[in-house]
């Protein structure tokens, strides 16, 4: 029964994507354009490349930078955000800097990163963190600031102590906003990962796509772009699942109020 429900849910989610792909497939099938090769050709190339021959050389290096960068962004961003959200004066002092950091287009920093940290993996991770940390930090800060005063009173009047107050009261209450921040960070991180690889790398998906384009292997280029799109989608899907599990109470309560 649950399997059936699941299939129906997935079908409901995917039918439109499938329709778009089908249209692309049919409309491009007779294409002789150099720039828009038939999807069937792209798909054939996709299978050759990504199932799974080039995975160790191009996909793995990308993920090897992306995952630790996101983990690091959470590890730094969440505690810092909680701290800022709890200390009003500190938050007032640093908030202009935060707004600046958030507003600054991170690509403008890439040359500086290269100059300081070289073109190794460490630099790429640092570069992704520099862009991805902000939504998490701001989400944690705003989430903690928005915690119901009644809950703070409760924590104080029962003398819960700092650790219990943070882990049992503040963090759970801020969790929905922290998760929203992480979701944005994933999208930003993916973009920065690709761009970083396009500009300074000798492996990775961004590098692959740009190389393919520059050597007029447009079918390869499309196959690479398709993979990047799918990767982004899968990461999002994975994250949504995690969110549903961790924030089950939140969604259950919201569903109730939505009636």
């Amino acid at each position: 029964m649950r399997v059936v429900q699941w299939v129906v849910a997935v079908a409901g989610e995917l039918w439109f994507a499938v329709a778009v792909l089908a249209a692309w497939w049919i409309l491009s099938s007779g294409s002789t354009s150099f720039y828009f090769p038939p999807l069937s050709e792209i798909w054939a190339r996709f299978r050759e490349l990504w199932l799974f021959e080039q995975v160790p050389t191009d996909v793995w290096p990308s993920l090897r930078n992306f995952s630790p960068a996101i983990a690091l962004s959470c590890l730094i961003g969440i505690p810092l955000g909680v701290l800022l959200g709890s200390l009003r004066t500190l938050q007032q002092i640093v908030s202009p800097v935060l707004s600046f950091g958030w507003a600054l287009p991170k690509l403008a920093l890439l040359p500086a990163f290269i100059a300081i940290a070289g073109i190794g993996d460490g630099m790429k991770v640092a570069f992704i963190v520099a862009g991805a940390i902000w939504p998490i930090l701001l989400g944690a800060r705003d989430g903690v600031r928005a915690v119901d005063p009644a809950l703070r009173d409760m924590a104080r009047s029962y003398r819960l102590g700092r650790a219990a107050t943070i882990f049992k009261v503040l963090l759970p209450a801020a969790a929905p906003q922290i998760f929203a921040g992480i979701r944005t960070s994933l999208a930003i991180g993916l973009v920065l990962m690709i761009v970083g690889e396009m500009l300074v790398a000798s492996s990775g998906l961004g590098y692959f796509v740009l190389q393919a384009q520059q050597s007029y292997a447009l079918v390869d280029m499309w196959a690479g772009a398709l993979l990047i799109g799918l990767l982004g989608y899968l990461i999002n899907l994975l994250f949504s699942t995690l969110e549903r599990v961790v924030l089950r109470w939140h969604f259950a309560r919201r569903a109730l109020h939505a009636g």
């Binding site: 009644a150 809950l151 219990a164 049992k168 759970p172 939140h250």
Partner: peptide, 25 residues
């Protein structure tokens, strides 16, 4: 306090809510 319902933690069952001050102590 008056707004008692807002002083309960939505993530915990009522058993855990009631137990919280004791566990923390």
């Amino acid at each position: 306090l008056q707004d008692y319902s807002r002083s309960l933690l939505p993530r915990y069952t009522i058993e855990k809510n009631v137990a919280l001050p004791l566990s923390a102590a």
